[in-house]
Design a protein around this nucleic acid. Structure first.
Lengths: 116, 116
DNA sequence: CGCGCATTTCGAATAGCGTGGAACCATGGA
DNA sequence: TCCATGGTTCCACGCTATTCGAAATGCGCG
């Protein structure tokens, strides 16, 4: 991942409303949520929500597909992973004890949900 | 970690100059770097750099200590870990295959440097 | 004490972001 | 074809961030 893409993604997430939307979609999983449902869940005006969803979309953090009258948004897990990997890059800096806990966090995340 | 702190940290990183500084400090490790050395390494004017370092400091991403005439900045690895954990939170969403690669990334990071 | 280096603070100009109202497309049903 | 619903685009306003030059602070040395 290049610095430019990372800045774009971080800028998109550096906004309380958008961060809430993104985390909501992460929790919603790959099936995603309709824009209207997101608006109801977050209490944001439709035009503001549409604008923020578009920003997240351009940043590569969410994907969208139409289903009838509704438009379903879902988190882009691949790019989320890429962003995290980019931030983790070079975190060792020759000091294993620095980055070792990161692996623990990731496996804890999985352990909490009971995955292998 | 609360949403507010996460937004503050993400806002601080959502800037090309600051992201470069932060990654430079991550690579520099716990010993950190003097402000002047950072300025020379990045080619940024001292006052602009000072401003950006202060923003990173307030966001909790770097720490500073004085050493004679120089001020040494170092990445705050603890808070960096907290931020990553916050973003990973709930990433499973009942689908183990989503978050499993994250653990792989973390251990890869360690493996690359040969840590346990 | 006084000088010089390293860094920070001040102030102002500029640009970009976020918001909300209103009008505008797209879809499905009668 | 006409209507109702779900989302989006347009636009104008206010606010915040970023940047730079210039001046000020803090520190060590002679």
């Amino acid at each position: 991942m290049e610095t430019g893409s990372a800045v774009a993604a971080l800028s998109a997430l550096a906004h309380e409303g958008r961060l809430n939307i993104f985390r909501l979609l992460v929790r919603a999983g790959p099936e995603g949520m309709a824009a209207g449902d997101i608006a109801r869940a977050t209490g944001v005006l439709p035009n503001t929500l549409s604008n923020n969803l578009n920003i997240l979309n351009v940043a590569g953090l969410v994907t969208s597909r139409r289903d009838g009258r509704s438009i379903i948004y879902a988190a882009a897990f691949d790019n989320m992973r890429r962003l995290l990997a980019f931030l983790m890059e070079d975190c060792c800096a020759g000091k294993p004890e620095i980055c070792a806990p990161l692996a623990a966090i990731a496996s804890q995340c999985c352990a909490a949900e009971g995955c292998a």
